[in-house]
Every structure is written in C-alpha cells, then in structure tokens.
Design a protein around this nucleic acid. Structure first.
Lengths: 331, 331
DNA sequence: TGGTTTTCAGAAAACGTTTTCATTTTTAAA
DNA sequence: TTTAAAAATGAAAACGTTTTCTGAAAACCA
C-alpha cells in the first residue's frame, strides 16, 4: 500500500534496522546517516505503521476510557483534560460509553484488551464490585475516577466526597434544622455513598435524626432533579433547603421551585455539586461545591502514566481540592 | 505473552488457518471442528490481537474524531451518539481535541493515519480550507459535521443553518425592526457564515439594513455570550431582541440582562441555537432552534460507514431537521 | 605499528494474524 | 465400484515493524 520503512531504507541507502533506529532516536547511529534517513522520510512522506509497531512492541499508545453520563458537563471537562494530558505523551484516547451497564463495561474492557491499550480509565459516577474485579483481572494499568476505592492496588482520584458533603451540611444546618437530599443512584454508587456518609456525620454531630423522607434518588440529570425536588417538597412541607449531588439536578430543582412560585433563596436554599460553568450563569446563580474537572483529569493521567511506566507510586488515593461556593441560590 | 491462536490451534488439534476461519465465521469449516475450536477459545479465554489483525488486513476498526469545543453540550451529545452507533458495528472511537487549532488538527490527522483509522469525523464548529485539503489528501473516508461543504467529494451532515436562521429572523422581526446578533468566530466559521446568510436574506426581504453594530463575535461560550450582550446593548440602546448562535451564549446573554435589571422578555427577547437540555431548565427558559445531536450523530455514522464500505452514496449533503421552540425568553 | 575498544550498520528472527494455494477427505454422480 | 466435484483442512507466505546478534570500520592507546 503506502510507503514503508523498506522504501525509506532503499532511498537512503541503508538497512531497515538503521531506519528503525533513526525513527526511534536510537543513539547508535551516526549523524550523517541519521540526517540522510530523515531526508528520505520527509521526501517520501513516510508514516510509521502503528499496527506493525504495536504488534512487535506490545505497546499501542492507546488509553481506554470507559465513561458514562457524558451528558454531565463535569465529566466532559475531565474527559477533555485527560485527552489534553494524554496527547502530550503521544497517547491517544479511545472512548467507550457504557451507559452505566456492567455488561457494556465488560464488553469494552474486552475490546480494549484486544486493542492492547496501555492504560484504562474508569470515568463513571458509579462502579460495581464486578467491574472492579474485571478491571483487576484484566491486568491493564488502571485508574478510577470519582470515588474512593477500598482496594489498595487500584488507584483512585476523586474529590473528598465525605469532607465536601460535611461542608455543605454544616452550611445548610446553620440556617435550618434539616435539609432535603437529592442523591445519585443507589446502585453501585460510590460517590453518593461517600457524600451520604459526610451528611450523616454532621447530622450526628448535631444530634439530628436523618430521616428517610429527606432523601430522594436522582440520576444526575436535570429532569431527575426536577422530579426529586417535587417529591421532597411534597413529602416535607416545611422544607427550606435542598442539597443536590450534581449541579444539573440542582438546576432541575431550581426550575421546580420557579414553576411553583417557591422563592429562592427566601423560601428554599439549593446547593449543587461540581461547579460546572453553567452554575455561574443560571438564575438564580447556583451555590455549589466546586471541583476542577481539569485538575481531576490531570491527576488521573499523572498517576496512570506512572502506572504504565511501572514507576513507584507513593500514594494512589488522590484527593483533589474542593470549595463550597455560595451564590444566589442559598441563604 | 498471552494466549495466541497457536495455543488455541494446539488445544483444538487443528491448524492456525482453521482457528482463524472459525474466528472470522468463514463458511468453509465443518460444524464439528468449529465447535471444538470455539470450546478451546472459551477454555483458554483467548483474545484476538487486534494489532496483528490490523497489520495483516489493514483494517483497524477505529474511527477517529477530531473535535473542538467539547464544553459545548450539543457537540457532546453528537459525540456520544456517534460512539453508540459506531460500537454497533464494532468500531471504536478514538478522539482528539484540536481546540480549533489547525496545527493540532493536522497533527491528529497524522497520528490517526498512523493508527490506520478506517474513518474520520470532523466535529468542530469551524473548519478551514487547509483542514479540508488535508482531510482530502489523507484519503481517509471522512464526514464533516456542522457546516455545509462545497466540495462535492466530502460529505457533510448538518442542520440547515440558512433556513434555521431565516426562521429565527422572521420570528424576531415580527415584533421588532431589527435584532442583535451574537455570532460565532469569524475565522473559518462555516456554520456562522451560513446563519448570517439566512439573516441577511430576511433583512433584505423586509428592506431593512443589517448594520455592523448589530453584530457581536462570540466563541460559543457562556462568557462570550455575556460580554457580547453587554456590547450589543451598549451600542444599541433601543435593542429589543438578540439572536445568539448557541444556547450557551444565549444563557450568558440572559445573565447579563438579569444582572442589569433588563427584564426578559418584556424588554429583551433572546433566542439561542441548538436546543440543549439546559435550555428547558434555565430561568427564563430559553427560546431556541432545536436540533438533535443524536440524530446528527446517527446520520454521520450512517454515511461514514457507507463510505468505509465503498457503498454508493446517493446524497452526501445531509440536512437534519430543526425546529424553532418558543419559550419564556422571547415574546 | 598492533591490538583493543568503541561506534556504527546490516541480517534475520520474531510479533500474531489472514489468506492463497495445495492437499486431503467427503459427497455426489455415473 | 470408479470418477468427478465439493468441502474441509493445512502449510506457508505476507503484513511492517523492532531488536538481537554479529561483524565491519573507526578511534583510541601504548
């Protein structure tokens, strides 16, 4: 088909080995021949064949990402950041959307294994024990995002969900006796569980009972935020505050209040989570726990590349900073 | 390293060729041996090596996407849809974010060529003539999204930008003599130019002059929407309506009005473009031109797969439907 | 000068598939 | 039965790299 190393070798009057060495910046080739080879490469517009190289070296320069909930701007920011970091080391991102289904996750792991990916990133809001097991079994260097992992072998990079939820809880309980919670899905939800833990901590510290009826289960979407707000408010007529586990759900909740003439923040305080760009612009602007998707992505790649290169990792449980930002949607 | 076809062959007591045939569902292998081979594959948990296969067949089952502006939820929806379609045909998506820089675009094209991608999707709001030329030169089956392409060889899938802009213009001119425009970047912007054309058509039909001062250049972000609204309103004290070329910019513009006690829609009508999910939930809810990112993605893949398979394509300029949705942000 | 090290370059094997071609076995036809 | 055709299998080459091993040339040292 195209131009191969053979053509370059012939044109430059050297052997295949030499061309290969030039391409890989091997030291054991003289400047003279190196430049001659480079010239030939340029003139022929030679492109290396990565399949052949991958076959021979068992290195694909591919990093797989299994994601879900990509309608979430925060995860998007992470994805973009990961890509930006990856390309600096000449890694390409190969992306699969599992929609949170285990079956699909396993399917992608399989595909990615066949593609000989060098590293794997699990970028889903939830993950099940089976997934963790499958990732471990695959032996692919991996990093989990968005939830603390018990397993000491598997690195995770995430905001400190417990601490962040504590911050929000303390803030809301300053003006209120209790607050409604719009959490993420129960199933396999690591991050949501951690945040619940933080809330429970603060409730306990204040000797308040956290009742079941304060809690609604959403799926991080605008729509579920809207519905959950409706349920919470109906079940708790005196409710004055809501903590939603994503900005999108918080915005949905705001919309419910607006549609029902509930004034924010006078009659209802709403706090979100993530600090997506939109949170600044919605009306009322949204109080939220800011975390940087860009930082998250960068940290993920840092640790993943270390794993790929078999470098020492002193700490494989990374927490990225978070900050409670108070805006118009809360008192 | 791992299990290879050789191991399977040995275990099943057949030759390499036979194993290969079983894997590829070749008809010329007896049911008996086929099931024997399959059993061996299962028992050994054999995984094909895609590098080797790609080397031999020159088919990678990889589709490259060069994207930009992935903070735009609409493009994200397209990306997700493309991935969902692709996986149905066992294609994996390999994604590069060019940030709209030609240099990076070319870099990715190069990388992708080396990876022997089977197809290429250009998913950027803007594209330059150089990019088009480079794509064409690469000989990779390609599809452009989000702007009509002159070149008869290159397929494009997009909303009918001219028509959509005409719809909005007519709508706004019903209650107004003119309106402000927050457009996309001038540089290489195909979609923005098309929309401007639509606006100009309607202005001409109504014998109105479209003045320079009605136009502000944004970059599709919330922030630029905010800034552009500021400039437009300052330069046109009597301005009553704004048409923004993305929902994000429209939401930014809304925020500017709110911050400055300009009542929407009484004193200012605002119409966006894309119909992202958030447009329903913001306050006031946003009038916008809805287009389906999912449909766009599906159509892109349909045509791309045809190109990859060298199938006849009767029409390689596809327009997807759009619909002007009137909500609270406009009269 | 002769010998030793260092530097540079080539030959050839290997990576794991697919596929062509040849061969054997089975089935069908006579 | 014998022969021809069809079906099933195997051997081996090929895809385009990297890398080990070996050898030649150049540089260094005494």
């Amino acid at each position: 088909m195209g131009i191969t190393m053979k053509d370059v070798a012939k044109k430059a009057g050297v052997s295949l080995s030499t061309v290969s060495r030039v391409i890989n910046d091997s030291s054991l080739v003289s400047k003279d021949t190196a430049s001659r080879v480079k010239k030939a490469i340029d003139e022929l517009d030679y492109q290396i064949n990565d399949s052949a190289r991958a076959l021979r070296t068992n290195i694909s320069n591919l990093i797989g990402i299994i994601g879900a909930g990509m309608d979430n701007p925060f995860l998007m920011e992470v994805l973009k950041s990961v890509e930006t970091e990856a390309i600096k080391d000449s890694y390409n991102i190969i992306y699969g959307d599992s929609e949170g289904e285990l079956e699909q996750e396993l399917y992608y792991i399989n595909m990615f294994k066949q593609k000989k990916i060098d590293g794997l990133i699990i970028l889903t809001a939830n993950f099940s024990q089976q997934l963790i097991k499958a990732v471990k079994k695959s032996k692919i260097p991996s990093v989990f995002a968005s939830g603390y992992l018990q397993d000491p072998d598997l690195p995770s990079v995430t905001v400190n969900n417990i601490k962040a939820a504590e911050d929000v809880s303390k803030y809301l309980l300053k003006t209120d006796d209790y607050f409604g919670i719009i959490r993420g899905p129960y199933r396999d939800s690591v991050a949501s569980e951690e945040r619940m833990k933080g809330i429970i901590n603060v409730y306990k510290d204040n000797n308040i009972g956290l009742k079941e009826k304060y809690i609604a289960e959403g799926d991080f979407s605008y729509k579920s935020g809207y519905e959950c707000a409706k349920n919470l408010i109906k079940n708790n007529p005196n409710l004055k505050s809501i903590f939603a586990f994503s900005d999108q759900m918080a915005i949905g909740a705001i919309r419910y209040c607006i549609d029902n003439q509930i004034r924010i923040p006078n009659e209802m305080s709403i706090v979100g989570f993530d600090g997506i760009e939109a949170s600044k612009y919605v009306n009322p602007s949204l109080s939220t726990v800011f975390q940087s998707g860009t930082v998250l992505g960068t940290e993920i790649m840092k640790i993943l590349i270390k794993k790929i290169n078999n470098e020492e990792i002193n700490d494989n449980k990374i927490f990225i900073p978070h900050k409670l930002i108070k805006r118009e949607s809360s008192r």
